[in-house]
């Protein structure tokens, strides 16, 4: 995992009360595997936006399934800016 991916795992772990950080992998599905509910997703989005200084629209959030998807999205938008 690179630094961005590690940071994302940290933030996901911070939000999801019942998940051990060791069990969060890049291919973990955030809802299906990690058990995130809507409030957890909103909470993660707010933390990610704050951490990476960007905005993630609700449409983009809809497309995200795995931790890897989050990392890809953030890396792509960092390249754009």
């Amino acid at each position: 995992m690179d630094d961005i991916e590690k940071k994302i795992v940290d933030l996901v772990a911070e939000v999801l009360v019942d998940v051990n950080k060791e069990n969060i992998r890049l291919d973990s599905k955030i809802v299906e595997d990690l058990g995130a509910e809507s409030l957890d997703i909103y909470d993660m989005v707010a933390l990610l936006e704050d951490e990476f200084g960007m905005e993630i629209s609700d449409e983009e959030v809809e497309k995200i399934r795995t931790v890897q998807d989050v990392a890809d999205f953030i890396k792509a938008s960092q390249k754009k800016s």
Binding site: L39, Y42, D43, V45, A46, E49, D50, E55
Partner: peptide, 15 residues
């Protein structure tokens, strides 16, 4: 309220 003034409505904490 500080977040709202400084960073805008989109950054309002969901909780």
């Amino acid at each position: 309220y500080e977040v709202l003034r400084e960073k805008g409505p989109k950054r309002m904490p969901p909780m």
